[in-house]
Design a protein around this nucleic acid. Structure first.
Length: 575
RNA sequence: CGGGAUGUGGCCUAGUCCGGUUCAUGGCGUCUGGCUUGGGACCAGAAGAUCGGGGGUUCGAAUCCCUCCAUCCCGACCA
């Protein structure tokens, strides 16, 4: 490809809307053009990279026996009604009516459509397992887009779905996918970290997320410094020692104006971990009165899952008042909640610690030496706490560390959530009708592209892994009006590179050298050839491979040198 | 949806508090001509803006007020 006439528009100044490194680079390099919030056009260089990522994914999916299909974006709402998600999913599912008033949705994921296909096409255990995938546009009306391609509303996703006749087989294939994912990301130049995760709106029994570790990430990861324990903070656990001692008699103390945990602890000359904190959440339908040790925080994901609620939020002052809860001085002890039904939920930390200082349920009063079981009680004791950096690993007890990550892929064990509701059944060996057992597996293609930049790029320079570079090689022609045949020589080299099966972008424009070099820094080819009068005087062309120093290569050796460098760059990625 | 911010030629930006000689500054980019080819050259000329939209106050509005919209950031949410 020659750069003259190529649809590329680089810019010097960073558009003010961009904040993240990847976003700035993608805009400056002319990879993407924003059309609306979270909606982008991809220019040729971006599209080339995306296609390469897609092909890597294809190869690895095919290798697991997954078959490529294509499903529609606009689908009848009735399918989503079958699974129940037409109602249960929020406004990120874009719903609309077609011309004769039929309810439609823009697919944000395809469990319903694919399950509709499988229940039609697969009816016997002899056909299982069945695995399909697609690379296709998703639309999600995200409440908040973020960071260029990191979080968008319309994007291409690889989504794969597998159907099995047993959990053993699902687990086996899940592991195969797990391995394939690592391979895909590695081939794209990223060492992804797999973490245990929440199943969210997908439902099901287990899930892992693949994370690109970077400060720009939206997710918080809890990672053991010693063993293999890794989890999204949403589900992470910690091993905690609780203070167990002989129960002392309860004692009311005046704590005028001391509302927060820290204030109370300081006022009474102790520390937050000897206190009991009450936090009240609402689902909109019921209140959850949560008791947790004062130094810990509620993990809203854990709580929401336990409550089986779509959303939860801190109870409003009105809700608290109606239930007779005294803000700042509340505790589960002797609560009547004005007769209202309020669930008391105890974090393990609160239920297992002795002699905690709790609220007195009266203004300016706290109570010392409160104990679960003796002074208050509930059937709902579980872990609803957030893990903090430095706590002990639940597996090995060593220190946990915290990092940020971008979720570039995820895999779910769905079980029978969709196959039951949509009657996706097969006949087993006994001739009995049974729902299939399902898994699903996603990768955000554009997000992966942006993540590669977040992880690998400099502030103003891109160096793509060769596997996903828009062009493997850029030939920078430094010539003016073909003086001393420099242009002819470049054309010749360009032709030979192409003939050797190398993807080369030839900068043949009539621009200044500085201009071309700056553009090359943004196009990010891992192999760059600078060829001009000066290099010819020095014996040939300058070749720069990756981050290495540039080397002078005689023209006769140039093609071989590039072929060799290319092979080495690929093998580094594949190991 | 809550909090914050911003909106001025294609891009970045001055002017906005304190209305009026700037009915709009400068740079980048674009176009024409010249010159130039090793890190975003130079010279000359040109095109390009109803100052996000609407309404209001005023003799007069980019500037003040109301309202709507859009975009970004934080939070909520997120297969």
């Amino acid at each position: 490809m020659k750069l003259s006439g190529y649809l590329l528009k680089t810019i010097k100044e960073t558009p003010k809307d961009a904040d993240l490194k990847s976003h700035k680079l993608l805009l400056r390099g002319g990879y993407i053009k924003q059309v609306g919030a979270g909606i982008f056009t991809y220019l040729p260089i971006a599209w080339r990279s995306l296609k390469k990522i897609e092909n890597i994914i294809r190869e690895e999916m095919d290798a697991t026996g997954c078959q490529e299909i294509n499903m529609p974006v606009a689908v009848p709402a009735s399918l989503w009604a079958e699974s129940g998600r037409y109602e249960s999913v929020g406004e990120e599912l874009l719903r609309f009516d077609d011309r004769i008033g039929r309810k439609m949705v823009l697919s944000m994921t395809h469990e319903e459509v694919v399950t509709d296909l499988i229940r039609y096409a697969v009816t016997s255990y002899k056909q299982l397992p069945m695995k399909v995938y697609q690379l296709q546009t998703k639309f999600r009306d995200e409440p908040r887009v973020r960071g260029g391609l990191i979080r968008v509303r319309e994007f291409v996703m690889k989504d794969a779905y597998s159907y099995h006749d047993s959990y053993e087989d699902l687990n086996r294939y899940y592991q195969e996918m797990y391995n394939a994912y690592h391979k895909i990301f590695k081939r794209c130049g990223i060492n992804a970290l797999a973490v245990s995760s929440d199943t969210g709106m997908m439902g099901g029994s287990g899930a892992d997320e693949f994370m690109a570790v970077t400060e720009a990430g939206e997710d918080t990861l809890v990672i053991c410094s010693s063993c293999d324990y890794r989890a999204n903070k949403e589900v992470a656990k910690a091993k905690r020692d609780y203070v167990k001692e002989e129960m002392q008699p309860m004692e009311e103390v005046a704590t005028p104006g001391q509302k927060t945990i820290d204030e109370v602890a300081t006022f009474l000359g102790t520390t937050a971990e000897h206190t009991l904190k009450a936090v009240v959440y609402s689902t909109g339908e019921e209140l959850a009165f949560c008791a947790i040790r004062g130094d810990l925080e509620i993990n809203e994901t854990k709580l929401r899952n336990h409550l089986k609620a779509k959303t939860i939020f801190l109870a409003t002052d009105e809700e608290l008042e109606a239930a007779g809860i005294v803000k700042g001085f509340a505790s589960p002890i002797g609560q009547t909640f004005n007769g209202k039904k309020v669930r008391i939920i105890a974090d393990e930390s609160a239920a297992n610690s002795s002699n905690l200082i709790a609220g007195g349920n009266k203004i300016d009063v706290h109570v010392k030496n409160t104990n679960f079981g003796r002074d208050w009680n509930t059937d709902e004791v579980l872990d609803i706490s957030s893990v903090n950096e430095g706590e002990a690993c639940p597996c090995c007890g060593k220190m946990l560390t915290v990092k940020r990550g971008i979720e570039i892929g995820n895999i779910f064990k769905l079980g029978t959530k969709y196959t039951e509701s949509m009657k996706c059944v097969y006949l087993n060996k006994e001739g009995k009708e049974v729902p299939m057992i399902m898994g699903c597996y996603g990768i955000g293609v554009g997000r992966l592209l942006a993540s590669v930049l977040e992880v690998r790029a400099d502030e103003d320079k891109i160096l793509w892994p060769i596997s996903i570079a828009p062009f493997e090689v850029e030939l920078i022609g430094l010539h003016k009006d073909n003086q001393n045949n420099v242009k002819e020589i470049c054309e010749d080299i360009y032709g030979k590179l192409k003939a050797a099966g190398i993807e080369v972008l030839y900068d043949d424009r009539n621009a200044s050298p500085g201009f071309k070099f700056k553009d090359a820094d943004l196009i990010g080819s891992p192999i760059k050839i600078a060829l001009g009068e000066k290099s010819l005087q020095n014996g040939g062309a300058e070749v720069t491979v990756g981050n290495n120093e540039k080397v002078m290569v005689a023209l006769d050796d140039l093609i071989d040198t590039v072929i060799k460098a290319k092979a080495e760059l690929y093998s580094e990625l594949n190991n």
